[in-house]
């Protein structure tokens, strides 16, 4: 048991220590979404009328959970992109020749990346009042729990890609073609009500849609009427958990293949 847990814990801890010693990463993954939020909120507030929500929901409020998801996404990407270089000429070389099963390496990385994403995401929670959302202790707890799940799935998704790549050149294309659209279509940026039917279907197939839905449901845990039209909480949570498991398994397989 010790042989299994110790490697996971040590890889997780390493990610956190590294992150705290590289302040620029912290700023990069945090400041950019905030700028987005401010500009989008200022620019779209006049034209934005989410259907199904009570009168007067502002865009700053609508996009707040979306910005949280974007912070999680960016941090998860930054945490996983280093995997590519790290295993060719860095610390991971030593990890890969150690008597450690591949799944526990991936688990350590995924938990490490998810912890960083969660830390960054939590920093956004004090801004909830600016979005007009008042959090209770219970909704705060549930929001953090959902953020943990979403962070883990996004980090595993990043690892799934990173373990297949030989250089980081291709990562930007994948980020722009897959990861950013995944975020855009999750309901983070605009609601699915009112979009053309084909787009509504694409949004329904986007796994992040359900992470976003769970996040919205938990933010408005005690005022469900204010949440607007999003998928219900329990199925959303189940799909998010399934997404975590799937991405983790695929990432483990990718890690196994790359050293074979």
């Amino acid at each position: 048991m010790k042989d299994r847990v110790l490697p996971v814990a040590t890889l997780l801890w390493r990610e956190v220590v590294r992150f705290l010693r590289q302040r620029s990463r912290l700023v990069g993954a945090f400041a950019q979404p905030l700028v987005f939020w401010f500009l989008l909120g200022a620019g779209l507030s006049a034209s934005f009328r989410p259907p199904g929500a009570p009168e007067g929901t502002r865009y700053v409020e609508y996009s707040y959970p979306g910005i949280i998801a974007l912070v999680l996404l960016f941090t998860a990407i930054f945490a996983t992109i280093s995997t590519v270089e790290d295993r060719r000429e860095g610390f991971l070389q030593g990890v890969l020749v150690a008597p450690v099963p591949r799944w526990s390496i991936v688990m350590g990385q995924a938990l490490g990346g998810a912890t960083l994403a969660l830390l960054q995401g939590v920093l956004l929670l004090p801004l909830a009042p600016f979005a007009g959302i008042s959090l209770t202790p219970l909704s705060l707890l549930s929001v953090v729990a959902v953020m943990s799940l979403v962070s883990f799935s996004l980090t595993s998704l990043g690892l799934m890609i990173a373990w297949r790549m030989d250089s980081i050149q291709g990562f930007h294309a994948i980020m722009n073609l897959i990861l950013i659209p995944m975020w855009l279509l999750s309901g983070a940026f605009f609601p699915s009500s009112g979009v053309p039917p084909w787009l509504a279907w694409v949004m329904r197939l986007d796994p992040l849609t359900y992470g976003m839905a769970a996040l919205r449901r938990c933010l408005y845990l005690e005022t469900p009427a204010a949440v607007g039209k999003v998928p219900p909480l329990v199925p959303s949570l189940l799909i998010t958990v399934a997404f975590c498991v799937l991405t983790f398994l695929v990432a483990t397989v990718a890690a196994r293949r790359s050293t074979a």
Partner: peptide
């Protein structure tokens, strides 16, 4: 190098030992 430059000498060895 397979050392983590952002960690101390001891931290690098500790992580390695844990593996």
């Amino acid at each position: 190098p397979s050392l983590d430059p952002k960690l101390t000498v001891m931290e690098n060895l500790q992580h390695h030992g844990h593996l």
